[in-house]
């Protein structure tokens, strides 16, 4: 059966022309499979600059991969007919990271919600439109009288972000790609919005791609998590395994840096390595994390570790696990997308 959306070995390089100072490999051989035959939730995590948004933009066809391909219902995005492209644009919706950018400062926020209603003819009358807008605003905990009629700068950051979630909900997509959809809202509201997304996912069969660096919520909503570091996957698999029992030293650092809501369990005060300063290594060098890794071995500087399948539902790109069989990205992601029979039954 063909999957709804697939990414095969995506690589994206910025710069690299004769005049550019350095090649920036933003994404390095990444694969992803969203089967679409059941609502799945996959989370993409990783530090700032690790390539999360780049991956999201490739999946949406907003930007083209340097190599590799994105397939929608088995067909390369580049080969879609106009009709197919239109269907794709409706079935795959996105909520972007910086909600302010998505707003035109000169239009009231109503415009953001009305545009898709008009474009996709979602309502037949004014009153139907008002009702629809009211419904989606309600889903994200906003009141029409406090939201509509205002300019973007008159809303708080979290309010703007929720307007964008409401907008995506209008369109009833099959896949919702959410790039940091809740980074600016508080925990309670975050739970409410993610709860809404989760409910929609289950009830309406929407698959979610949840891009975030909030590992706590990633853990809570997702089944599968993909941890990126400088454009490469360092660890991928069932969220339960990856977060609760992390293998890659980078994943461990990430999980260890979660600020626990408990004043008695303080963050370690051990020195955290300083900001990466130099350029990034190119394709084919050693492990990208080698320079920061406390467990670095000579082999790490020589070649990029492949993904080692350490158990049936997880793989880690680290030589510490070289006893396990190496696995190829597309194959691994396809098998993970098949769901994990009965082991994931939450809610």
């Amino acid at each position: 059966m063909t999957a709804l959306l697939e990414a095969h070995n995506l690589t994206k390089v910025f710069g690299g022309g004769l005049l550019s100072r350095r090649r920036n490999v933003a994404l390095d051989n990444i694969s992803l499979v969203i089967s679409g035959d059941r609502p799945s939730i996959i989370s993409i995590a990783g530090e700032s600059g690790s390539g999360k948004t780049t991956l999201a933009r490739l999946l949406l066809g907003i930007s083209q991969p340097t190599s590799g391909q994105v397939l929608y219902r088995g067909k390369d995005l580049k080969r879609l007919s106009r009709e197919e492209w239109k269907a794709f644009r409706r079935e795959v919706q996105a909520i972007f990271q910086d909600p302010f950018e998505a707003f035109n400062p000169f239009y009231k926020v109503d415009n953001v919600l009305n545009t898709p209603i008009v474009k996709f003819r979602l309502a037949r009358s004014r009153s139907e439109r008002r009702e629809l807008v009211g419904k989606v605003l309600d889903m994200v905990g906003l009141r029409p009288e406090e939201t509509l009629g205002r300019y973007p700068h008159q809303l708080s950051g979290g309010q703007r972000q929720r307007v964008m979630v409401a907008r995506a909900l209008l369109l009833n997509p099959k896949i919702l790609l959410a790039d940091e959809p809740v980074s600016m809202v508080d925990a309670s509201l975050r739970a409410t919005i993610l709860g809404t997304l989760l409910k929609l996912s289950r009830e309406m069969g929407i698959s979610l791609v949840y891009v975030t660096h909030d590992l706590t919520t990633a853990y809570q909503v997702a089944e599968t998590i993909l941890v990126l570091y400088q454009g490469s996957v360092v660890e991928v698999g069932d969220v339960e395994k990856v977060i609760r029992n992390s293998q890659h030293p980078y994943t461990r650092l990430l999980v260890g840096s979660i600020p626990l809501p408990n004043p008695k369990l303080k963050w370690g005060t051990e020195a955290i390595e300083t900001e990466r300063t130099g350029g990034r290594s190119g394709v084919g060098g050693g492990c990208k994390y080698a320079g920061r890794c406390p467990l670095v071995m000579p082999a790490c500087h020589e070649q990029l570790p492949p993904l080692y399948r350490t158990d049936s539902r997880r793989a880690t790109a680290c030589f510490l696990y070289k006893e396990s069989p190496a696995v190829e990205g597309v194959e691994l992601m396809s098998s993970l997308s098949q769901g994990e029979q009965a082991s994931h039954k939450n809610g």
Binding site: A187, R190, T192, G195, T216, Y219, Q220, I258, P261, G347
Partner: peptide, 15 residues
């Protein structure tokens, strides 16, 4: 405080 998401309470979406 009671509704804080945590790694111990999975799938517990109570705002």
């Amino acid at each position: 405080i009671d509704t804080l998401p945590s790694l111990d309470r999975k799938g517990d979406f109570k705002g």
